[in-house]
Write a protein that binds this DNA or RNA. Structure first.
Lengths: 208, 208
DNA sequence: GTCTATATGCCGATAGAC
DNA sequence: GTCTATCGGCATATAGAC
C-alpha cells in the first residue's frame, strides 16, 4: 500500500525529530525531506501539523496507558480483597514497567520515550495539553493507589511527591538518548539499569 | 538614564515571557510590545535575540552560582579539617538554598526560576548549552562533595542519582508558577514549603 | 538613542495539474 | 495519491531618518 507506507514514514520520522528538537522547532519541510516524501503529503494524510503530533502520541500512548491501567486495577483489586495496603514499589512499577516493555517491542521506541519526556515539559501549552489529556486519567489512578500504599500520609503530600517523581522520570527520558548533563555519567548505561536506579531513587523518595 | 531604563524593561519582560512560553515561542515583537519599547531596541542594546537570553541568564545565574560555590567550598573545607563526611542534606542545601534566597531578593525572581527549569530541558540545544555552560562547574563541585558524603557509593551511582534529582528540581521550578499536573495539587502552596518537601524527597533518594 | 520602514527568509497550509 | 507552485503570515535583523 503506497498510502500507508508514506503515512508510516512520516510518523516515524516526525517521532524522531519531535523527540530530538521539539515540536515547534521541527518544520514540516524538515520532516518530509528526511522521510523522502512530498511536503504536501503531511496535510493530505493528517490535515495539519498538530494532528500529526496527536497521531504520534496515540500510536504508543493508547496501548501503553491501557496496560498501565490494567496493572493498577489488578493491584487495587488485590488490596480490596486482602485489606492490606500495597507496597509503594509495586504500585510504581505498574506505571513504569509498561514503558520498559515498550523498549523491547519497537526498535524506534527510544524516540517515543524521549518525546514523552519532552511533551511533559514543552514550553508550548498546546503540546503539553495534547500529552496530558492522554495521561491524566492514569496519573489520577496511580495517585489513588499510592495513597492507599501510604495510608498515614496526607493525599496532598503524596501528590507532591508524585509530582517530583514525574520530574525525575521526564528528565531521565529526555536525556536518555542524548548527551548527559554531568561529566561522571556513562551515556551507554543500558536503559534497564537506568530505570532500576531511577525506580530505587523514586521509591525511597515516595516512601514513609 | 533612558538607556538603562529601556534595557532593563526589555530584560525583565523577556525574562517573564521566556519563562512562560519558552525562548523560541516568544518573539521579539511580543517582548517589545509588552515592554512598551521599540522593536529595534533589542538589537540595538543586545545585538541579537540570543544575546538577550545570555544577558538574562547572567543577571541572576552569576551571583547565584558564586553563592553556591562559596557554600560548597565551606563545607568541603570543614570536611578536610574534621575528616568526617558531610551529611547529604547539608551538601544539597548548599545548592538549593541560594535559589530560595533569590526568592526573597527580587519580586520578579519567580520567572527566573521558571526559566532555569525550562532552560535545562529546552528542546533547542543552543538554549540548553547557554544554560549548562553557566552551571556545569557548580554541578561538578556538587557531585564531588556528594561523593564524599556517600563514601561507600560509586561515583557513577551518585551521578545518576544527582541526575534524577536535577529532573525533580527542574520540573518543580517549571510548574511552580503554572498549572499543576495533578488534580490533588494545591497550586497556592508557598514555595518555601514546596522546596522543603522537594529537599526531603531528594535527600531520601540520594542517601544510603 | 529611538523611531519607521523594510529586507530577507522560513513557516504552515492550500490550489490545482497530473 | 502525489506532485509543483504559491499564498499569506510572522520571524529576525537592519538601514536610515530624526
Amino acid at each position: 500500500m503506497a498510502q500507508s507506507d508514506t503515512k508510516t514514514k512520516i510518523i516515524k520520522t516526525a517521532e524522531e525529530l519531535f523527540a530530538i528538537a521539539g515540536f515547534h522547532h521541527t518544520s514540516l519541510r524538515t520532516i518530509t525531506a528526511k522521510a523522502g516524501v512530498n511536503l504536501a503529503a503531511v496535510n493530505y494524510h493528517f490535515g495539519c501539523k498538530e494532528a500529526l503530533l496527536e497521531a504520534i502520541l496515540d500510536r504508543h500512548l493508547l496501548p501503553l496507558n491501557e496496560s498501565r491501567r490494567r496493572r493498577l486495577q489488578a493491584v487495587a483489586d488485590e488490596v480490596d480483597g486482602s485489606g492490606r495496603p500495597p507496597a509503594v514499589e509495586e504500585v510504581l512499577r505498574c506505571f513504569t514497567e509498561p514503558t520498559l516493555a515498550l523498549l523491547h517491542g519497537d526498535q524506534a521506541a527510544g524516540y517515543f520515550r524521549m518525546l514523552v519526556g519532552r511533551s511533559l515539559s514543552d514550553p508550548d501549552q498546546t503540546v503539553r495539553q495534547h500529552f496530558l489529556g492522554r495521561i491524566r486519567g492514569v496519573l489520577e489512578q496511580l495517585l489513588d493507589l499510592l495513597c492507599r500504599a501510604l495510608p498515614h500520609c496526607p493525599r496532598e503530600s503524596v501528590a507532591w511527591r508524585l509530582h517530583f517523581a514525574l520530574g525525575a522520570m521526564s528528565h531521565t527520558l529526555i536525556f536518555q538518548e542524548q548527551g548527559p548533563l554531568l561529566g561522571g555519567l556513562d551515556k551507554s548505561t543500558p536503559l534497564d539499569e537506568v530505570i532500576e536506579m531511577l525506580t530505587d531513587f523514586i521509591v525511597k523518595g515516595l516512601d514513609r
